[in-house]
Each structure stands twice: as structure tokens, then as C-alpha cells.
Design a binder for these strands. Structure first.
Length: 672
RNA sequence: GCUGCUGUAGCUCAGUGGUAGAGCGCACCCUUGGUAAGGGUGAGGCCGGGAGUUCAAUCCUCCCCAGCAGCACCA
């Protein structure tokens, strides 16, 4: 007589089951409806296959499609397996490697057979069709425990060199599992999986693209083809997702930047931005705003050289560690050879001194700090700079305004005593919160901890990490509301980093703000202050930024607002458009009054129909269109059509000016 | 930097081994019209750069540059 297993359910009841029974059996025992709906199980909290037998008494929660997060994870993982199976079925000789679930779907890295080109977009329809066939075949997905040697033998026998390599590195004593799809295909996998491929909705996925990816993420390894798909529980979810992608594409700052005439990029200066008048207007508003915030917070603004002798960069450590990303120029007048009408050929003397363009502002700020003798009474010293930096980024990394080779940071360095660090960081947390709130962003705060390769003693790292932790706790942000999380190994080589990750209007996150507690650079550059005891001490240097860079922040703003910037940032805040030319004089008068009130206004007196003007200025994302015809001219009113609203409002010109003035006031200057 | 794709008018894109086309935009003319495209005419291109194949290259081949997607990178 074997003992029955005691399976506790979420409602507190306990069921007794035969040994060897599975969560699926429990579901069946409860009712046929649940048996059908259950797709997986949480056994003692662990997500498991529905038909994996219990190993003893357990707490069970059955997972159905209503448990969306679990269900999606399972479905995507299954889609990835089906993808790999489909590719191998269509193209025998393809090697498979890995295929996890992602935020919106799945991918699988594969290596095409040697006699075939790597897979391309053109192959995707065939693969999708094969996947649907596998799903419709409703192949059972069966878990099996294998030994490591069994796995190695199988992969080697099948010429799966990547899988074999991986299997060889698996731990000896761990329980290794494979999943069969029917009787003819398997992949090694930790699981769990759905009970069969038929549990997937064949209309709920779409292969989206192919891309190169390195084996095990290392660029020294062979490159594989990564096939991406997006996968969901049903077609409705898939379509909603595809709609979201379209929405994101519409917000693309590169597209809007062109349409709204904000900036352009061209290959002669790739990675650097040509700001047009309208785009630079946004920049100037941001810069004025940030100057006010920093002035109020006790920062003092400085300006430091773009070019410094390479010896200075050697001392700071950048020339050794970072030279390949720096631009260098010879400190000399180049010899120029005239070649008739051809190009001048400058040559650099072998003994030329080299200068480098700054990739960051910190060393220069230390040099400013080091001028004169600083007393502990002067600390903290907060030096700010709208610092224009150049970094020679890998070309594949460049992306619109988000990743550029020339950018300007809202940079500052706070030099302080150890005792002041926590308070300074706490104050920064508050400042950052004010700024992000003014733009309507919510954000998460993360702490990036010491990386493997680093400078400085363990004691200093312990201290530096704890300071940041304490400051965030004091600011009341070390909790779920602020997405508080510590990220081991993600810090800079010289300091742990607090990071601010913004969430934009369609849910994407962007890292912008940071503060870092650095004890390395003050030491390398020999910065010191005189303490109360009369001795020299090293200050702690806090590197910090809130926008991160103007370029990136403007890119994020454009996408966040889909180009519909708040009035205070809009390059053109209002357009006065006439219906008939008889209203021209009144329109000009209105423009003059608005300009006098400090509103950025343009007039549109063109001989075009009002429909046409409305359409054009709506596309241009002008917040307010003030329409004037004979009626308004007589009555001294304007008909305001506000972007995004269907109805116009008629009000007196005075009222309109008051309203626009209020909306055009930057958030930090508003009353109340 | 790696893999793949792309590069034709200001923008979005079609097209062909015999030096090119559309829509939008732009200019001019007509139209003065009350809230998302009124009509007409016209200008505008070394078909990314270089080399090669060819009687002939925007088209085919090779190299380079830039962009896009992903990877790697982001002190």
C-alpha cells in the first residue's frame, strides 16, 4: 500500500493523489473545464509542466491563460522550440543553439548548413508555414531526464557542435532535461513547456526579422543567424502588439525630426547633429530650464577646453583605457602638399604632439578644482558644465539622436568630503525627481554595483556602494514604487552608479540620469583639500547628470510626446492663420501682441483655404492655431483650435494671450 | 567593429544594360474660400563614391562610404 500524496490547493483544500500523478490529473479530478484550461502548474512556487509527476507532497496552483505572465512565457518558449524544429525540418543540417523568450516574443539562434546562405527575411514565410504545420500536428512535448554524456553523444552524433560544446560545460550532477516534440525532434531545455504544440495559437505569432548574433554573445565567436518572432496567446494580442509597433514607428524621433524640421544628419558628419532653428529652440529651452535648476541647487557653471594634451589623458587613465574611442589631432600646422587641382594631402610629422578631444568633462573639472588651495570649509563644490564631448563610437552603435559621436551633457561634478556624500546624493535624488516630474516622466532607480574589472580597494567599493544605497533610502526611493533594484557587476570601473531609467508614453525605458561616487579619479589626478586637521585629504567626486545628453533627452522627448511637445517646449507655440486677406491687418496686430507677451508665434497669411492651413499646422504639431476671419477682426477675438482637440474655442485676444502665456511658462517658473 | 539589408528629385518611393518616373513639397498663375488636401502650369536628378566588365552601366562584378535592423560596445 503506497502512501497518497497530499496536494494543497490555493483555496486551502488538500487533495490526495496517487504517487506518479501529475498536476494535470489534479485538474482533471477537479473538473473537465479546468483540465482543458490548465496549461501548466506552479508546484511549490516553481513553474512546471502540467504533466510532470509530483515528487512528493506539494503546494499546487494550476496555471491557465488567465495567468497571463506565466502563460506568455510558456507560449513564447514553446514558439522558440517550434521555430527551431521548423528550421531543421525545412533545412536539414541547420545547427541549433539557443532560443529563449523575450519581452514580446522569442528568438532562436541557428547556423545555416554550410551549403546554404544564412537565412534571410525571404525564408521567414516558409518557416512560419512549417511552424503552423507543427502546431497543428499537436505534437506532445514530453520531458525526459538525460545524463550529460547522453546529451554530448547525441549532439556530437548529429554534428551539433554548439550544442555539444554547451553540453560539455554543464555540471555533472545536475538533473539535465530534454523535451521531445512528438517522437522525432528534441531540444535540451530546462523547461517548462506546454503539454503539446497544439496549445499554441497558430495565428498568434509572426516571425519579424533575422539578424546576426554571436555564439554565446562573444564577438570572437562565430556569428549565427538569430530569427526573431513576436508571440502571443491569441491573434487579438498579436494584432494589438503589431499596432503598438506601428505607433512606435510613427513616433520615431528621426522621422519626426525631419517632418518637424528640427534637425538633420548627413554622412559628412555622421553621428553629429545639425540642429535646425526649431530643434535648437527646444535645446535652448531645456538649457535655460536646466541652468535655473542648477543655479538654484548651488551649482556653479564652468566651461572647459575641448582639446587637451594627450599627456593629460594619460594621467587620467583615459588614453590607456579609452583611446580607441577618442578623437586625436596633431598639435601642429600640417605640411600640405599641393597636387595641382587635386586634394591637399596633409602629412603629420613623426614627432608631432597629440591632443585629444574630450570624451568627457571629468578630468577638466578636477583641474579646475585643483586651482588654488581648497579648504574643507569650501566643500561641497559643485561644478557644472554644458559639456560638449566627442566619442568615436562603434559605427553600428550610432542611432539618430540617441547614440551620437558629438553630444552635450548636463554634466556636473560634486567635490565633497566623505561625510557629505550621502546628503549630496540624497539632494540629487530630489533634484532629479523634480526634473523628471516636470516633463511628466515616471522612472525607476537602479544601483549598478562593482564590475569585475575595477580600480580601487574593496573597502572603498563597500563604502561607495553603501553611500548610494543609504542616500536612496533616505530619499524614500528604495522601494518598488521607484522600481528599486541593485544590478551586480553593472557599475563603472571606477565607481558604482545610481541610474535613472525613464518610462516613456508607450512603456519603453531609457537610462538618462546617473550619479556615481568616485574615489579613483581624484587620486589619479591628485585632487585634495585641506581638512580641519590641517592635513591634505582626498575629496570624493560625484559624477552626475540628469538629462544625460541634450541630444538623447530631446530624442526621448520627441518620442514620448509623439512630437506634440508641451507648449513651453514647442518651437512654435502658436500660429495665427487668416481665412480671408481682409483679416491680415488684424492678424499682424495679434502677432505683435503675442510676441510682446513672449509667445513664439508665426503668422500664416497665405492665399490658402483654412482647411489647408489647419491640416498643415496640425501636421507640424503646432499646439495652438489661432484662426481669424472678418468676424474675429471685428470682434477682437480669435478662434483657437488646440492640437488634439476637435472643438475650437472663441475668446478675446486678451484672454488668448493670458492663456498662452500661462501654458508657455516653464514648469519651474509657474506659481503654486 | 560583426552579420544581413538598403542608398534614384527636398521627402516617400517606382523603374530600366541604351544617361529616368510618380505622389507630396517648392515656384508661378487662377481662386478670398470658416476648421485636416480648390484648380492649373512649371522648375528640380553626375541614380552614394571609386574601379572593373561592356560598343554602352543608375542597373552586372569588386572595393569604399553612409544609413537601417540586430549583435557586440556604451568608461
Amino acid at each position: 500500500m503506497t502512501e497518497l500524496l497530499k496536494i494543497s490547493l490555493p483555496d486551502g483544500s488538500v487533495r490526495e493523489m496517487e504517487p506518479g500523478s501529475t498536476p494535470g490529473d489534479v485538474a482533471a479530478a477537479i473538473g473537465p473545464g479546468l483540465a482543458k484550461a490548465a496549461i501548466a502548474a506552479r508546484v511549490d512556487g516553481e513553474l512546471r509542466d502540467i504533466n510532470r509527476p509530483f515528487e512528493g507532497d506539494a503546494e499546487l496552483a494550476l496555471v491557465t491563460a488567465r495567468d497571463e505572465e506565466d502563460a506568455l512565457e510558456l507560449a513564447r518558449h514553446d514558439f522558440a522550440h517550434v521555430l527551431a524544429e521548423a528550421v531543421q525540418s525545412l533545412y536539414p543540417g541547420t545547427q541549433i543553439t539557443f532560443g529563449p523568450a523575450t519581452d514580446d516574443g522569442f528568438y532562436y539562434d541557428v547556423k545555416a548548413p554550410a551549403d546554404r546562405e544564412p537565412f534571410s527575411m525571404d525564408d521567414l514565410p516558409d518557416i512560419e508555414e512549417e511552424m503552423r504545420r507543427i502546431i497543428k500536428a499537436d505534437k506532445p512535448l514530453r520531458r525526459e531526464v538525460w545524463s550529460r554524456q547522453q546529451l554530448i553523444d547525441k549532439w556530437e552524433a548529429e554534428g551539433e557542435v554548439f550544442k555539444a560544446e554547451w553540453a560539455k560545460e554543464l555540471p555533472e550532477n545536475e538533473e539535465l532535461t530534454v523535451y521531445w516534440s512528438g517522437e522525432d525532434w528534441l531540444d535540451m531545455c530546462r523547461g517548462p513547456h506546454l503539454a503539446s504544440t497544439g496549445k499554441l495559437d497558430p495565428q498568434a505569432f509572426k516571425l519579424t526579422r533575422v539578424a546576426g548574433a554571436y555564439w554565446r554573445g562573444d564577438q570572437n565567436n562565430p556569428q549565427l543567424t538569430r530569427i526573431y518572432g513576436t508571440g502571443w496567446l491569441n491573434k487579438k494580442q498579436l494584432n494589438a502588439h503589431l499596432t503598438r509597433l506601428e505607433e512606435a514607428a510613427k513616433r520615431d524621433h528621426r522621422k519626426l525630426g525631419r517632418e518637424m524640421d528640427l534637425f538633420h544628419l548627413q554622412e559628412e558628419a555622421h553621428g553629429s547633429v545639425f540642429w535646425h532653428p526649431k530643434g535648437y529652440r527646444i535645446w535652448r529651452e531645456l538649457e535655460s530650464y536646466m541652468r535655473r535648476k542648477m543655479d538654484k541647487a548651488g551649482y556653479r557653471e564652468i566651461k572647459t577646453p575641448q582639446l587637451m594634451d594627450v599627456r593629460q589623458w594619460e594621467q587620467s587613465g583615459h588614453w590607456g583605457k579609452y583611446a580607441e574611442n577618442m578623437f586625436a589631432v596633431p598639435d601642429m600646422v600640417p605640411e600640405v602638399e599641393e597636387l595641382g587641382d587635386g586634394p591637399a594631402n596633409p602629412s603629420v610629422a613623426p614627432d608631432a604632439d597629440w591632443m585629444a578631444i574630450k570624451p568627457m568633462n571629468c578630468p577638466a573639472h578636477v583641474l579646475v578644482f585643483k586651482q588654488g588651495i581648497t579648504s574643507y570649509r569650501d566643500l561641497p563644490i559643485r561644478l557644472g558644465e554644458m559639456g560638449c564631448c566627442h566619442r568615436n563610437e562603434p559605427h553600428g552603435a550610432l542611432h539618430g539622436l540617441m547614440r551620437v559621436r558629438q553630444f552635450t551633457q548636463d554634466d556636473a561634478h560634486i567635490f565633497c568630503t566623505e561625510a557629505q556624500v550621502v546628503e549630496e546624493v540624497r539632494a540629487f535624488c530630489k533634484l532629479a525627481d523634480e526634473v523628471y516630474s516636470d516633463f511628466g516622466f515616471t522612472y525607476d532607480v537602479k544601483l549598478a554595483l562593482r564590475p569585475e574589472k575595477r580600480f580601487g580597494s574593496e573597502a572603498d567599493w563597500d563604502k561607495a556602494e553603501q553611500e548610494l544605497r543609504d542616500a536612496v533610502a533616505e530619499a524614500g526611493m528604495a522601494n518598488d514604487e521607484y522600481g528599486w533594484e541593485e544590478l551586480p557587476g553593472e557599475g563603472a570601473f571606477y565607481a558604482p552608479k545610481l541610474e535613472w531609467h525613464l518610462t516613456d508614453a508607450i512603456g519603453r525605458t531609457w537610462q538618462v540620469g546617473t550619479i556615481q561616487g568616485d574615489r579613483v579619479l581624484p587620486d589619479r589626478l591628485d585632487a585634495s583639500y585641506v581638512g580641519e586637521d590641517g592635513d591634505k585629504h582626498r575629496p570624493v567626486m560625484l559624477h552626475r547628470a540628469i538629462f544625460g545628453s541634450y541630444e538623447r533627452f530631446i530624442g526621448i522627448l520627441i518620442e514620448h510626446f509623439a512630437g506634440r511637445l508641451p507648449v513651453w517646449l514647442a518651437p512654435v507655440q502658436a500660429v495665427i492663420a487668416t481665412i480671408v486677406s481682409d483679416a491680415d491687418d488684424y492678424a499682424k496686430e495679434a502677432v505683435a501682441r503675442l510676441e510682446a507677451a513672449g509667445i513664439r508665434v508665426e503668422s500664416d497669411l497665405r492665399n490658402e483655404k483654412i482647411n489647408y492651413k489647419v491640416r498643415e499646422h496640425s501636421h507640424a504639431k503646432v499646439p495652438h492655431l489661432l484662426v481669424v476671419g472678418n468676424r474675429e477682426a471685428e470682434e477682437g477675438t480669435v478662434a483657437i483650435r488646440t492640437l488634439g482637440e476637435k472643438e475650437q474655442r472663441v475668446m478675446s485676444l486678451d484672454e488668448a494671450i493670458a492663456m498662452l502665456k500661462a501654458e508657455a511658462t516653464p514648469p519651474d517658473l509657474r506659481e503654486g
